[in-house]
Every structure is written in structure tokens, then in C-alpha cells.
Design a protein around this nucleic acid. Structure first.
Lengths: 272, 272
DNA sequence: ACAAAAACGAGAGCAGTGCTCTTGCGTGCG
DNA sequence: CGCACGCAAGAGCACTGCTCTCGTTTTTGT
């Protein structure tokens, strides 16, 4: 039904995509402020009024671009996470996940301390990989980054449609910490938390169905926001006369963020 | 000279201020995107073309507003710092700047441990006061905040005029940590830093004429960026379905940031 | 298969914008 | 006092988002 009925619908979705592509091009060239519906239509060889059949207003086009940017950033983060996932996966999945073959798995003769250290190292690597993937995407698409993490463009209300896509990189980060916590290799912070913050953390944990101590979740949210603080400062020019070694500084800050949520580098043989 | 010659110049600066005020009003009402020169002129009862005698372009008006916002935020931060400065200061100087004056306290009668604890507590209080002052200002002027810490509005180049004002809150934070370091109550982080980051930190320290270990300075920059990450997420709606207890969460995150730069709460009688 | 209905494209047009140019008018300085 | 400069006003250009109308095409119901 929906497959064959295409004909027209396919043309519609094709044109919709063409419009978004052209809009993205203008976005990358001049920024969101200069994005003009008429210019898009002109470039596509159609009347400007025809464009309103696909996007009822300029803001709707922008929100479509916002959603796309969120998901693009989300998949970049998830790809980075999966690329650094545990090598000895379940045999059922045929995903091309096999960086190390079977070499690392099940070596019981070695102390499990070593396995723990390796798992902790992997968690830390995943964390950093996600962060640098986000940064790489942001550096490659600065205007799209500005669109989603800069000043809200329209009135200022983000439709709820965007929230799902917007959460993906946050969820990726949470996932890493959740797995680390489940594996018991998380150094939980022991600090007093305000009750309201605990309540928020509990509510969020319940909503996301993730079991993490409130303190960890709270720090996770903070790290999530702070990650984008670093990125925004770098992209928006706040580091201009301050930080020159951007990549090194970012990596440094990010690994420190990892530490703040309890992901500790195994380092020099800590526990017996 | 410049005082009396006014007459005409005074009128000019008055009108300039009126324009900026009206522009600020529209900015607060609708955001930077909707700020219209014609609307400002209309509201001021003058022809739109007359406005170009005062600001050669819309972007120039915006940059003027940006500079003003930076300095307003900067004075808010500095005021918060000074309000929590050392109470028993020398009566002569009104400026709270006293880098090495008494060299960390002469109170010999009481255990100097207590004086140290009090000084450390004051440093921490100053840090938090600056951060919450920044947040309060941002919450009171969300659109102006978006103007300076959101997506860059024009092409994207920030004129060097703004950098001075932009640095003020960062400098306030650095000042607190510098004083704490001079007083010897800073827990320096002992972590390996990439050479490039060390070079940046040294260069920055030399440029600002502040003596701080590179690791502390690097963390300071990170904390500075992360502070605005927290603020941007709160203001731009990223916390909407995530964090409800905004103030408590912010305070919590900020005190943690303080800890990351070495400002430790005296807390329960740590050192002898 | 044919007609009704819906979707579509193009054009004209409105209100608004940033910005430039030209034209008068008033004040301030030599 | 007179000249010149700073100033305000208006007209105008090119552009924008958006609406409305009017043919044309495609889909759909009978």
C-alpha cells in the first residue's frame, strides 16, 4: 500500500529532502540567520510559494534541520560508542563487531583484576570516543551545531519532537556509565546531595529505566552539559586568544569529566 | 575638554544610549533575530535612516549591545566577588585586591589552621558567589545572554573590542583561585598534562601576569567553559524534562567545579 | 472509465526589512 | 556673520516571509 502508492509521495519526499539539502548547504555557507526560503527555492528552480507546500514556514524548515542535526550528532556518538564496545559479544549478532577476534575473551588464568582493569579502560575509552566524536561532528558542521546548541532561533520553544533526538548523545554517555556501574567498576562519589537534586535524579533514572546512584546521575548530567560548554566555547570563539591546543585541551578536559562521574583509568595496578 | 565640549556630543551620546536602550528592550522582548532597526527608530519617533548616523549597520548595533552585555555580566561577577571578599581588610584600599599583602594571615594567637580554614571557606564562597551571580544575571537577561554566549550572530567574527569585556568573569574566577594559591590553600592536581596544554597555560599565565601551576590554569579554563555549559543548557531549554531543581543542581555542580580547580571546602578538620 | 477531490506549481501581491542616496535644516566654529 | 558640517527626513532599491489566487496534474471514489 504505502510502498506502491508512492509515485507522488515518493516525489514529495524526494523534493522535501532536496529542499533540506539545499537549506543545509546555505546553512553551512552563511549560517542560520541568512537562510532564506526564496534563495532555496531559487536554487532549486521552483517558485518560492511552492516551497510552502512542503514546509509551512521558515521556522518549520529550521526545526526539520534541527531534528536532522540532532540525529546526525546522535548517530555519530552512538557509532563511536559501538566502535569501542566490548569485543567478545554474544554469538547471535552478526554485527561487524570484531576488532580483536577471540583473543581477549575468557582468559581465566589471568587474574580477574586484569579483566576488570581492561573493562574499565574500555569504558573510559568509550566515554572519550563519544566525546571526541561529538566534537569532530561539531567541528565539521559548525553552523548545524550552532543551530542546535546555540541560541534558540524561533520564539524559543523546542517542540517535543526534538527532545528524543536531542537526548541521544546524552543517552550514549549514560549507557557507558550504566554498563560500568553494572560491572562494578565505578567509583561512586560520596557527597551530600540536596534532596531536590536526588529527587530529580531518581525521577530521571526511573524514566530512563537506568539504575544508577543519584550522585552519579547528577554528575552525569553536569558532565553532559559541561561537555557542550567546552564545545560551544571552542566553536563560538571564546577560546580564541586563550586556548590554542584545542584537541589536547579537549581530550584532557573530557577525561577529567569522565573521572568526575566515576570512570577511573585503571592506571598503575590499584587494587590487588 | 571632553566634558564641556558636550552640547552636541552630549545629545549624540544621549541618543546613542536611547537607541541602545530601546534596542535592548526589543531584544528582551523578542530576541536578537527579531531586533529591527526600523522598529527601534519607529519607537523613538525618528526616521530609520537617521539611525545610521549612530550605528553604521545593524550588526554594529548588535556588537554594541554585546559589549554592554559582557561588561554588565562582568560587573555582576566582580560585585559578587567583592561582596564576599575578606572582611578584615586594610582600611586604606577600597579595592579588594590584596595579592600578597599580609602573606596569608598573621593571626598567631588562634591556630593558624583555623585561619586557613576560614580563608579557604571564603575562597570557596567567592567562587560560588561569582557563579551564582552570573547565573542570576543570565536568568534576568536571557536574550542578552544568548547574544553573547549563544550562536555568533553576524558572520561570526568577534571584534577584538569585545574580548576585554568578555574576559571579565573569567578573570574574576582566576583571581579567586590565584589568591587562594598565593595563600597556599589550593590542592593542586597532580596529573600528567600534554605539553601543548602546558604551553598554553604558561602563555596565558604570562599574559595575565598570574602565577598558577599549569594544571590549575588548565582546569580553570575548563571550569570556566563548563560553567557556561551549565548555564546555556539551563537557559536554552536542554534541561527541560531533565532537571527541575535548577538552582540546587547548579549550586551543586558549581561547587564541584570549584573542587576540580583545587578549591576545597575546609570541611571536617582535614589536615592537622 | 469518468468525474470529483485533492495536491501541486507558478505568479502576483502585501507588509516588512537593511541599507543608500539625496535633499533640506539647524547648530557650532572660525 | 557666514560657512560648513552634523543631523534628520524622505524616497527608493533589493530583499525577505508569507498569502492568495488560478490553472494544471494526479489521485481517488463510484
Amino acid at each position: 500500500m504505502t510502498a506502491i502508492r508512492g509515485a507522488r509521495e515518493r516525489a514529495r519526499s524526494e523534493i522535501t529532502e532536496a529542499i533540506k539539502d539545499e537549506a543545509r548547504k546555505q546553512l553551512a555557507a552563511e549560517g542560520a540567520a541568512k537562510l532564506s526560503l526564496r534563495a532555496v527555492a531559487r536554487e532549486l528552480g521552483m517558485a518560492s510559494s511552492a516551497l510552502y507546500r512542503y514546509f509551512p514556514s521558515r521556522d518549520d524548515l529550521l526545526t526539520a534541520l534541527i531534528v536532522d542535526a540532532y540525529t546526525a550528532l546522535g548517530v555519530a556518538a552512538e557509532r563511536a560508542r559501538d566502535a569501542n564496545a566490548e569485543p567478545p559479544a554474544a554469538p547471535g549478532t552478526t554485527t561487524s563487531r570484531r576488532p580483536e577476534g577471540g583473543s581477549t575473551g575468557r582468559s581465566e588464568k589471568a587474574g580477574r583484576g586484569e579483566a576488570r582493569a581492561r573493562a574499565a579502560e574500555r569504558a573510559l575509552a568509550q566515554w572519550c570516543a563519544i566525546c571526541t566524536a561529538v566534537r569532530d561532528w561539531a567541528l565539521a558542521h559548525p553552523h548545524e551545531y550552532a543551530l542546535i546548541y546555540g541560541s534558540p532561533v524561533p520564539g524559543y520553544h523546542a517542540p517535543h519532537i526534538t527532545t528524543e533526538s536531542a537526548a541521544r548523545v546524552g543517552l550514549a554517555l549514560i549507557g557507558v556509565v550504566r554498563d560500568a556501574h553494572a560491572a562494578g567498576l565505578l567509583k561512586e562519589p560520596a557527597e551530600p546531595l540536596p534532596d531536590a537534586v536526588v529527587a530529580d535524579a531518581l525521577a530521571l533514572g526511573a524514566e530512563l529505566d537506568v539504575e544508577l546512584p543519584p550522585a552519579v546521575l547528577a554528575r552525569l548530567i553536569g558532565a553532559w552539559a559541561q561537555l557542550f560548554g567546552l564545545l560551544s566555547f571552542e566553536l563560538f570563539g571564546q577560546f580564541n586568544r586563550v586556548v590554542e591546543a584545542r584537541s589536547a585541551f579537549f581530550e584532557q578536559a573530557v577525561s577529567q569529566l569522565a573521572g568526575s562521574v566515576g570512570l577511573v583509568a585503571p592506571g598503575p595496578r590499584t587494587s590487588t
